[in-house]
């Protein structure tokens, strides 16, 4: 009898998880199409599809599609997916909603490296992206090494990460106060996150990374269900805790670092996507796919608002993500979970 109830509940939960994922996917595709079609120069949806398929289109459409809108929409989707996935992995692996890469120092590693490269060393172009990625990876490895003590405990990792992140933030603030105000103001736009004016050479590495790392993360993510029980129980169930944790973390750092190097640390996407997905799905199961899709949708919607709906001035996407994502998360916090888990 009770086994039947458990079975029914489980089936209902996974049906809901699938429904949420499907709805998010549809919404993200619709937003992607809208981003390609809408602008000062309207492109009809049939023309969008024709241009994507390489068929003949009215004059100007191919240029706007391939050189302006498609890069922008692609980097939005890819960075959103990567940040959402990375954030959810961190939060679920470390069992703390505050433990996203933008809170525990990984994103700060990327930004500090980039700020030093641009404002102190005067580097430009693609090298900045490489430096940012290296910054994220080195920071993550330093945090991992410093928190190693017969294994890496969840809280220890987060605390060490916050400590390292604070130092990095301070270094960034210090450099900003020492630089010319115009240069510092430009740096702040990158620090907030922006997807405008990206070129294919900047996007392709991110695309490759997402294609390789996202399936890896989802496969490795299966162990999360076991790990959420706690290290001891997970070990008892045969999950190789340390090795799986390390592999997942490195995958997540790779995703966050690549996304940061392409679009800047788009504010709060990594932090918010996971909790939003958890509340949409309910039931306390790992929600990596849903979190990734929430991330993509959040970046697409935010960039659309930032570039079309705020008057004559265009705002970088990172300015908007917090404004629309956070109230939505608050609303979910207040309402969506009344029947589910209290936390």
């Amino acid at each position: 009898m009770s086994a039947g109830v458990v079975e029914t509940t489980r089936r209902r939960e996974s049906a809901r998880a699938r429904a949420v994922a499907t709805a998010l996917l549809v919404a993200a595709i619709a937003m992607f199409a809208l981003t390609l079609s809408y602008g000062d120069f309207q492109i009809s949806l049939p023309d969008v599809v024709r241009s994507l398929l390489g068929q003949p289109t009215p004059p100007g459409v191919d240029y706007i599609m391939h050189d302006l809108r498609l890069p922008r929409a692609s980097v939005s989707v890819l960075a959103g997916l990567a940040f959402g996935l990375a954030g959810a992995i961190f939060q679920q692996l470390l069992r703390n909603p505050l433990a996203s890469p933008d809170v525990i120092g990984v994103s700060q590693g990327a930004t500090t490296a980039a700020v030093v490269a641009v404002l102190v060393l005067g580097v430009e172009g693609g090298i900045v992206a490489a430096v940012a990625l290296a910054g994220a990876l080195v920071t993550a490895l330093v945090i991992y090494a410093l928190s190693w003590r017969k294994g890496v405990g969840g809280y220890r990792f987060i605390l060490v990460g916050i400590g390292i992140g604070t130092v990095l933030t301070s270094i960034t603030s210090y450099i900003l106060t020492r630089s010319d105000v115009k240069v510092a103001a430009e740096a702040m736009i990158w620090l907030t996150g922006s997807v405008s004016g990206r070129t294919w050479p900047q996007i392709v590495p991110l695309a490759v990374a997402v294609l390789i790392l996202a399936p890896m993360a989802l496969t490795l993510g299966r162990v999360l269900t076991g790990m959420q029980l706690g290290d001891d129980l997970a070990t008892a169930f045969g999950v190789r805790v340390q090795r799986s944790r390390f592999a997942l973390l490195i995958t997540a750092v790779g995703l966050a670092g690549m996304a940061t190097s392409a679009a800047g640390p788009i504010a709060f996407v990594a932090f918010m996507s996971g909790p939003i997905a958890v509340r949409l799905v309910g039931g306390g199961r790992p929600v990596l796919i849903q979190a990734a899709l929430v991330g993509a949708l959040l970046v697409l919607v935010s960039d659309f608002i930032g570039s079309h709906l705020l008057g004559s001035r265009q705002f970088p996407v990172g300015v908007v993500t917090g404004v629309i994502g956070a109230p939505y998360l608050l609303w979910l916090l207040a309402t969506a979970n009344r029947s589910g888990r209290g936390g």
Binding site: A267, F268, F271, M272, G318, V319, V320, T321, G322, V323, G325, A326, P327, L329, L330, L333
Partner: peptide, 8 residues
Amino acid sequence: AVTAALTS
């Protein structure tokens, strides 16, 4: 979350 919104 509120911090995120206000910071933006």
